[in-house]
Nucleic acid binder design. Structure first.
Length: 473
RNA sequence: GGUGGAGUGGCCGAGUGGCUAGGCAGCGGCCUGCAAAGCCGUAUACACGGGUUCGAUUCCCGUCUCCACCUCCA
């Protein structure tokens, strides 16, 4: 068993060979909590959730660190001029993210460090870079500290760019920079910024630059050399390039494999605030069951751009219903519930091969569909053993993908007493309908079905009699 | 201008030098009083032009188009 992942730096598939055998350290760039989570944030979180699940199922002890950037220009700007302090804004949005992740079934990371709780680690790292001659305080007395890109010949190695070809960095006022491409490690406090948005440092009061936090936190929790660093494709430059440069310049081995997930597009265009085409997580999750959203976001390989459309969401819902319906039928034929924890030994070899191959979830889903079809055929043929075997495999695969229906308990609907009451009422109607049908009075039978349908109760006739369910929409 | 990536049947989306994933939608059939579900079968592809090859959607060259990053961004 060898799990392979695509590494941005070498532009090749790399075998995963953990620094510490049997353990995997995975760092993921989490969100800047400045505004509501959208579908792109969900996809990113989901990619690493599935990666983590597969690594875990494969026997690794995974430490997943996903940071929260809770101090940043945008957060300060968002709170400026409002009654809400910047830290309240950040925390409010952070909770929105947590809620969206939770609804989607994204497991919490092993730890979720906040930037504001790791300021000293960043100061230590910056000091180390200054000592080593790779960073310098601005000469203009601003209190800024910059990374000296000219001092680091490897700069650009992650994204294969040469310093000369790059446009100038613009993440800070260039006055105090030796070179326009140098980037801020520390930002001196400006007079119009809140006093509580700054910390004391050897360079005066200020706050950390964006890139330094990930270097400080990843190495703090995973060690100076760790296995996998993940994030969205749009973070490759400058964020990850700078992260790599400053970490390597500090003497760290840092991440061995850099993975980047593709973005979500709407109408062939990147979704972004400025285009006004954002699909927010809360809206999405209100529009369709979380399980369907999860399926949709997993239906493209993680490095591919994923095209979002409302029609695609409906499609995902139907697809998921088909899978769930099979499991439900199999259960009534004696299939036992899927254990909450499964391993790679519980899934078909072809599924495992697809997952090992740079997490090819679409190919893995094809195996799921194949087994569902086989299972349905077995049910139709009365082959219980084959049906149960298929259900076991399907259940295990869904667990790995975080798509198992058991993990998505119906919220606010599955009240037992209410269900029983409804069942009694519906059963009475179905009894009348059965009599009508027996008497070949199909007008009456269809009227009853229509009445129930109008109330949101769907009727399906089976060889064993009619079954009812509550329509989702 | 630099860097990375993409153009696959109605839509989404894998993949491969010949045996052409999967889903949804469509069509035909089975089942059903009808429907739904399910099963079986089935049409529609690989941006364009060359080249290599017995054979290319898959390799090579060229062309076109599109996307992302180089500014905050999952």
């Amino acid at each position: 068993m060898t799990i392979r992942l695509h590494d941005t730096r070498t532009q090749t598939l790399q075998d995963l060979r953990p620094v510490h055998p049997g353990r995997v350290g995975l760092y993921v760039c989490g969100p800047t909590v400045q505004s509501a989570p959208h579908i792109g944030h969900l996809r990113s979180a989901l990619v690493y959730d599935i990666m983590r699940r597969w690594l875990t199922a494969s026997g690794y002890r995974v430490t997943l660190i996903r940071n929260v950037t809770d101090i940043d220009d945008k957060i300060l700007a968002g709170a400026a001029g409002t009654a809400e302090p910047w830290w309240a804004l950040a925390y409010r949005v952070e909770r929105e993210f947590a809620h969206a992740y939770d609804r989607l079934g994204v497991q919490p990371p092993t730890y979720e460090p906040r930037a504001t709780a790791n300021i000293q680690r960043m100061i230590d790292l910056i000091s180390r870079l200054v000592e080593r001659g790779h960073a310098y305080p601005a000469a203009d007395g601003s209190g800024d500290v910059y990374f000296d890109t000219a001092s680091w010949p490897a700069y650009g190695e992650l994204t294969h760019q040469r310093l000369e070809d790059m446009a100038d960095a613009a993440d800070a006022d260039p006055r105090g920079k030796r070179d326009p491409r140098d980037f801020a490690l520390w930002k001196g406090r400006k007079p119009d910024e809140p006093e509580d948005a700054s910390w004391t440092s050897p360079w005066g009061r200020g706050r950390p630059g964006w890139h330094i936090e990930c270097s400080a936190m990843s190495t703090a929790y995973l060690g100076e050399t760790f296995d996998i660093h993940g994030g969205g494709r749009d973070l490759r430059f400058p964020h990850h390039e700078n992260e790599l440069a400053q970490s390597a310049a500090a003497g760290y081995g840092f991440a061995r494999i850099w993975v980047h997930n593709g973005l979500v597009s709407v109408g062939d265009q990147k979704m972004s605030k400025s285009f006004g085409n954002s699909v927010f997580a809360a809206d999405l999750l209100d529009r369709a069951p979380a399980q369907a959203v999860r399926y949709l976001l997993g239906s493209a390989q993680y490095r591919s751009t994923l095209e979002y459309s409302p029609a695609g969401l409906d499609e995902a819902r139907h697809t998921v219903e088909r899978i769930d319906a099979f499991l439900a039928r199999a259960a009534s034929e004696g299939a036992v519930p899927t254990p909450a924890t499964v391993t790679r030994d519980d899934v078909p070899a072809e599924f495992a091969r697809a997952m090992d191959d740079d997490l090819n979830v679409p190919r893995a889903l094809a195996v799921v569909h194949e087994r569902v079809r086989q299972g349905n055929a077995a049910l139709a043929a009365g082959d219980r053993d084959a049906a149960v075997a298929a259900a076991d495999a399907v259940g295990a695969m869904l667990r790995v993908l975080g798509l198992h229906p058991d993990a998505f308990a119906r919220q606010g609907r599955a009240d037992d007493a209410a269900t029983q009451a409804l069942d009694r009422l519906v059963a009475e109607r179905l009894d009348s309908r059965a009599h009508a049908r027996a008497a070949r009075d199909f007008t009456t039978a269809d009227r009853i079905r229509d009445e129930l349908a109008a109330a949101g109760v769907r009727i399906d006739d089976t060889p064993d009699g009619a079954r009812w369910s509550v329509d989702d929409d």
